[in-house]
């Protein structure tokens, strides 16, 4: 019995496959647009290309939004698979059932930022009369097509490697500091240090955003992302589980914890992305960066994460 055949993974494959097929249909158009599109020309070819550009733009916008939404479904499906895969208690074990599983997850996560950036570029392009970024955006779209191709191959490889019969590790071993791996080393960083960096970076992001230093805001946001993930794993999650030894970024997604992981990660990813894209937009079109939304989202993330240890302290009078 192959894991391919669960309804969840099939739907995932169906939609990913559908998107890839649409991308394949678009490829020749994208290729021509990337090479030939020139709003300054008035040839029949250019008029035809302008229509193509609308198709490509509309389709890509539709597809990339679906891709972003699909990420949530992917995470949900992983979590659901933990019921089938022996030994897996949550998505952590499922994603580690294949050596390249973590790569697939990282790839998909990177995809969120890439797709989002492309959508921002597309919006900026269409908002100017001279469509200044059209060639650029279609060239980048060719890159996205390759990116999606690799992602699909990884997904196939991953689902193929999933075997309900093999026993995988649960999050208890994967995220333990005793784990001899890069992650294990990182998790061994003293919590006080980690938290110091976490809150300091957040303060730096707020400061640079308020001072309108978009470059700095983007840099700190980029740094904040991995630090925040580490802080969730080794510190904040233990307060969600109320168990000092339970350090896992995936169990948060489960029903026992009110699915709060979805909210927490949404705030983190949307917040950092919003800041990055605001900085990017400011750079591209020389306008004032719109940091407000990103700051609210990220502020919400920090507040939510902080609430768990504080709430625990208020309830029990001690920290874990």
């Amino acid at each position: 019995m192959s894991a391919f055949l669960t309804p969840d993974t099939l739907v995932l494959l169906l939609i990913e496959g559908l998107l890839l097929a649409l991308m394949a249909v678009l490829l020749p158009s994208l290729w021509r647009l990337a090479r030939r599109f020139d709003i300054g020309r008035t040839t029949p070819e250019q008029y035809a290309l302008e229509k193509r550009a609308y198709l490509a733009g509309t389709l890509l916008r539709f597809m990339l939004w679906v891709k972003i939404a699909l990420f949530v479904y992917f995470v949900y499906a992983l979590d659901h698979l933990s019921g089938v895969i022996t030994g897996a208690m949550c998505a952590a074990g499922v994603i580690n059932a294949w050596d390249y599983g973590p790569l697939l997850l990282g790839w998909k996560l990177a995809g969120l930022y890439l797709f989002g950036s492309w959508l921002v570029l597309h919006r900026l392009d269409l908002s100017r009369e001279n469509l200044p970024f059209s060639r650029l955006k279609f060239r980048l779209a060719l890159g996205l097509a390759a990116f999606m191709g690799v992602e699909f191959a990884l997904l196939i490889g991953y689902l193929d490697a999933l075997d309900p019969a093999t026993i995988v590790s649960c999050c208890g071993t994967l995220f333990s500091t005793a784990n001899v791996s890069a992650l294990g080393t990182l998790l061994a960083i003293p919590k006080a240090w980690l938290l110091g960096v976490f809150y300091a970076l957040f303060a730096l992001i707020v400061a640079s955003a308020l001072l309108r230093r978009s470059g700095l805001a983007a840099l700190f946001s980029l740094l904040f992302l991995p630090v925040a993930l580490l802080a969730i794993i080794s510190f904040f999650s233990t307060y969600v589980y109320e168990l000092p030894t339970h350090t896992c970024p995936f169990c948060l997604l489960q029903k026992e914890y009110g699915y709060m992981g979805y909210l927490l990660y949404f705030l983190l990813f949307a917040g950092t992305f919003s800041l990055l894209s605001a900085a990017l937009a400011a750079k591209l079109v020389q306008e004032k960066a719109r940091f407000a939304l990103g700051l609210w989202l990220l502020g919400g993330f920090v507040a939510l994460a902080t609430w768990y240890p504080v709430g625990f302290y208020l309830k029990n009078g001690v920290f874990l």
Partner: peptide, 22 residues
């Protein structure tokens, strides 16, 4: 084990049908 293999069985049959359906 049993619970897992039952989820597997239902997923499998549902999946088999779903793929035909799609």
């Amino acid at each position: 084990d049993l619970a897992g293999s039952y989820q597997n069985l239902f997923d499998y049959k549902g999946g088999l049908f779903l793929s035909l359906f799609i």
